[in-house]
Amino acid sequence: MNVQATGTRKLDLSPGRAEASHIRVENVTVAYGAIKALSDVSLSIPPGRITALIGPSGCGKTSLLTCVNRLIDLIPGANASGRILVRDTDVLARGADLLRLRKRVGMVFQKPNPFPFSIRRNFDIVLSEFGVRRRADRDARIDECLRAVGLHAEIGHRLDMSACALSGGQQQRLCIARALATRPEILLLDEPCSALDPMSTMTIERLLLKLKDSVTLVIVTHNLSQARRIADQCALFWTRRGTGYLLEHGTMADLSERPQNQVTDDYLNGRLA
């Protein structure tokens, strides 16, 4: 799939394609210098679903997430080994095309990070990088993305105001919309609601449930009830002597009702951490 083909793909993919995994993590180990942060993780993430990465702080969830779009390359001393297959491309491979990868795999950060320009320019920069040049095309795409995150009614008529003047929840939804502007097939979310109030959190959760028809979502969250509310699949990470590892994964019901480990049972039922 080349960039152009991705560019013309419609936002709404037909849901439930018969593929076992969209992202396939195979024996991934992440180290920061001499410190191993994540050890030998293998995990399959199905398409068109919400997969939640849960577990206590410092067990490598975010590290794994940033491996998928190779943002981890920007952390000095970080080194990831193993394979992560997005469809059939190994994104951890040496010669991987990072620009194309990051257009296929969007990311939303813990703290909303709108660019300190107008709302329109937040999109324009991304769209021009993406080769959408005509104003009408851009406006149509902005419209589409704002509608997808339910911001259209709120700010659709005020695209020239500064993105930084929006409320925290609106900023985060704008960031999601901006990430959708490249029509990614995967959206990585790193605790997207941890800086938001409960109302904005609910709005974003509803939004994610709506989005999963068209995009595969991987969300890191510390909020177990959030994982229960939205996740189709959960991966519980734990640490052993400072190194994170995948303890158990499955549906949230599997994990809480039929846990394979005592730790899983205790953690999910609030008796730990």
Binding site: L71, F109, N113, F115, V126, F130
Partner: peptide
């Protein structure tokens, strides 16, 4: 988050620096 965010959106490094 400004620089990381723009790279995460698929901006090339020079574009992220120049435009953002």
């Amino acid at each position: 988050s400004l620089y990381l965010g723009s790279l995460a959106l698929g901006c090339a490094r020079h574009a992220a620096i120049k435009r953002i």
